[in-house]
């Protein structure tokens, strides 16, 4: 195993609302390898976007990073590594601002609202280039045109002076990608970058991102709920449910040998060509309200078709099935240990 680029341990992000505390991210462990693609998969509201935002410390209020570490391996100019704990950086401070955009860049879901409609595409890209490289206006503009060309925008020297609302959705997302890559980031976070686009454009953007990853060799954290996309691009997959990673392995294993009942259910719910409409099997039940999540027991248990008696009393921990595959489910925990926890739970009432 190579040394990971980013090693996240026990990340906790809570939202302190008037109605109560929402534990959006509740103890996430993740590793992202240099140059590899990790797909973070889960239903809406499971905390995958919030997790990715934590890496750049751009969590929205009233969200707060309350615990955990995010060790980022920063390559210095002299070739040596320096390990920075991103969790310890001040969200408004200079160190994290130097990482944003330059080391870690991000592409957002909605290209229409994620770009400012009152600034030209060029203004928004050159701003980033000039901020991190100290390039002159002219140099930054050339670099921006070069990037726009690279992401397949026709007539980039004219389009650079256009406003985003005059571009199609696909072109906007291309411009967004050009911006994110303009400072050659080591890691790129893409938060559902194709969700807002139509299907043909989705495929084009996806191909483009893979191609660029090959060229630039950056690590890619791809957030999606679309398992079809995952199959196409992922090296590794992490499945998230209610703020926790429930299963993590390489893409092959996840698709061919899924262990967690939630992952299995997710895979069964993908429509396939030549399938009858009524054969589709949705996951039963609903994602519980953020204020009424099960505590100290298995969180997926109410919707699970393999639950057994202990599931409603013991909280599963992350178990290594093999070196490269971890599952958070009682089915795979040491039976004795489960029993032990079981009796303890009974003893404590």
């Amino acid at each position: 195993m190579t040394t990971p680029l980013l090693e996240v341990t026990d990340l906790k992000i809570h939202f302190f609302t008037d109605e109560g505390v929402v534990k959006a991210v509740d103890g996430v462990d993740l590793t992202i390898e240099r140059g590899k693609t990790l797909c973070l998969v889960g239903e809406s509201g499971c905390g995958k976007s919030v997790t990715s935002r934590a890496f750049m410390q751009i969590i929205r209020k009233p969200g707060k990073l309350v615990d955990g570490s995010m060790l980022y391996r920063f390559k210095k100019d002299d070739g040596t590594d320096e390990i920075i704990d991103l969790a310890k950086l001040d969200p408004k401070g200079k160190p994290i601002r130097q990482i944003r955009g330059q080391e870690i860049a991000m592409i957002f879901q909605e290209p229409m609202t994620s770009l400012s409609l009152m600034h030209t595409v060029g203004q928004q890209i050159t701003e980033l280039i000039r901020l991190h490289t100290g390039a002159t206006k002219h140099e930054a503009r050339n670099r921006a045109i070069e990037m726009l060309q690279r992401v397949g925008i026709p007539k980039p020297d004219r389009l650079i002076d256009e406003y985003p609302f005059r571009l199609s959705g696909g072109m906007r997302q291309r411009a967004m990608i050009a911006m994110a890559l303009s400072c050659n980031p080591t890691m790129l976070i893409a938060d559902e970058p194709t969700t807002a686009l139509d299907v043909t454009t989705q495929a084009q953007i996806l191909d483009l991102m893979l191609e660029l990853q090959n060229d630039y060799g950056m690590a890619l954290l791809f957030i999606t709920h679309d398992l079809g996309v995952v199959a196409e691009i992922a090296d590794d997959v992490a499945v998230m449910y209610l703020g926790k990673i429930v299963e993590r392995s390489d893409a092959d294993t996840i698709f061919n040998n899924p262990k967690h009942p939630y992952t299995q259910a997710l895979l069964r719910s993908i429509p396939k060509i030549a399938m009858q409409r009524d054969e589709l099997e949705p996951i039963k039940g609903m994602v519980p309200s953020p204020f009424r999540r099960p505590v100290n027991i298995c969180q997926f248990q109410p919707r699970c078709n393999q639950r057994f008696e202990a599931c409603s009393r013991v909280e599963p921990v992350s178990t290594l099935i093999n070196e490269n595959h971890s599952v958070r489910c009682l089915l795979y925990e040491d039976v004795a240990a489960v029993h032990q926890a079981d009796t303890e739970a009974v003893a404590h009432g």
């Binding site: 935002r53 750049m56 751009i58 929205r60 408004k92 601002r97 130097q98 990482i99 944003r100 955009g101 330059q102 860049a105 991000m106 957002f108 879901q109 909605e110 609202t113 994620s114 770009l115 400012s116 409609l117 928004q124 701003e127 980033l128 901020l131 991190h132 967004m176 911006m179």
Partner: peptide, 16 residues
């Protein structure tokens, strides 16, 4: 302040 383009700007590393 809660519009996505503000997040984008922040993710570039601009000061607040």
């Amino acid at each position: 302040l809660n519009k996505p383009y503000v997040d984008t700007a922040r993710s570039k590393g601009l000061s607040e």
